[in-house]
């Protein structure tokens, strides 16, 4: 019943929905501007660290924390590291966390929800009971346990990661890949705990759709069940999925910040906005710039993502046309 609001008719399926939605999105200036800001920020995070005069982890201990200056536009932190470089490098990590974790949640949630919704009956009952059980786990405990078990160099997952990495690079055994693994791990863990709502939403959609004539027709001509689920049902539930996805990204980015505050998220010397904000909050009375710049970046990004999500909701929700 929590998915009630999302159980809406899929609207007219096919091209017209997408084109319609795009038209409406473009006319929603707030969402459109937010989208542009996001793209600019994203590009900046990708390219600025490549061009910046300082590396994100280059220390100058003798310099220490200094306010913004001509040499360091956003000042430096306690270790004399350039905050400008760290903020943009941190943006990469934050965006990656947001997108990858959401991706994980999307894949698991959509598959889980669609399968449960389509097959119904006992399958549905068991699958949804599992979701209920996971819902009662405080997600923090899950993340901690996963981290404790697997985010170390002895975990079997790390060996799997090394093996996969070995396909691309020669020195996969180099421990300098460990932080990469640990970040991937935070993504994975966050994704693992955020797919539950997605599964419920998709299940609701699929249940509403599965009795529709076009599905009956597909079933009648002998299309395999999984094909029906993924070719016909999921695309028709795309609206709510996209909306929820867009709204999950900022949620995940905030959660990453929360975990960083608890010391369970991204780890130094890497940076992420969450980590920078958490660090800045501790010394805000002494070095306010360490809080202000990353906070502004994080807040602007979250705002833009929310605007975009709202815009998408308006664009993809056919009822919005009435307004």
């Amino acid at each position: 019943m929590t998915a009630r609001a999302e159980v809406v008719p899929g609207g007219a399926p096919g091209r017209s929905l997408g084109r319609d939605a795009w038209r409406r999105l473009r006319h929603n200036r707030a969402a459109f501007v937010a989208g542009i800001v996001l793209v600019v920020l994203l590009l900046a995070c990708i390219f600025v660290p490549m061009l910046a005069p300082y590396a994100y982890d280059r220390q100058d201990l003798a310099l220490g924390a200094t306010p913004p200056s001509a040499a360091h536009w956003m000042g430096t932190d306690f270790h004399g590291r350039d905050l400008f470089a760290r903020v943009f490098f941190g943006g990469r990590v934050s965006f990656a966390v947001g997108f990858i974790a959401t991706g994980v949640a999307l894949v698991i949630g959509v598959t889980w929800g669609a399968v449960a919704g389509y097959f119904g009956g006992r399958v549905d009952a068991v699958m949804m009971r599992i979701v209920d059980i996971l819902f009662t786990f405080p997600f923090l405990i899950l993340v901690i346990l996963l981290k404790v078990f697997f985010a170390n160099s002895r975990s079997p997952l790390y060996h799997a990661f090394q093996a996969t990495l070995g396909l691309f690079v020669k020195d996969a055994k180099d421990p300098s890949y460990l932080p990469l693994f640990q970040i991937f791990f935070v993504f994975g863990a966050l994704g693992l705990v955020s797919w539950l709502t997605m599964a419920r939403i998709v299940r609701g959609q699929v249940i509403a759709l599965r009795e529709q004539p076009f599905i009956e027709a597909a079933r009648a001509i002998g299309v395999r069940p999984l094909a029906i689920v993924f070719r016909h049902l999921v695309p028709n539930a795309a609206g709510p999925i996209i909306v929820y996805t867009a709204l999950t990204v900022p949620q995940i980015m905030l959660t990453e910040a929360f975990l960083s505050f608890l010391g369970l998220g991204t780890e130094e010397p890497l940076s992420s906005w969450g980590l920078l904000v958490a660090g800045g909050a501790e010394t805000m009375a002494l070095y306010p710039w360490l809080l202000v710049f990353p906070s502004v970046m994080l807040a602007v990004t979250l705002l833009c993502l929310n605007f975009l999500g709202d815009g998408l909701r308006d664009a993809l929700d056919p009822r919005a046309r009435k307004a």
Binding site: V277, A278, A299, L303
Partner: peptide, 10 residues
Amino acid sequence: LVGLSVPRFV
């Protein structure tokens, strides 16, 4: 939206 974007620890 500001309320949603400012973490409690800030």
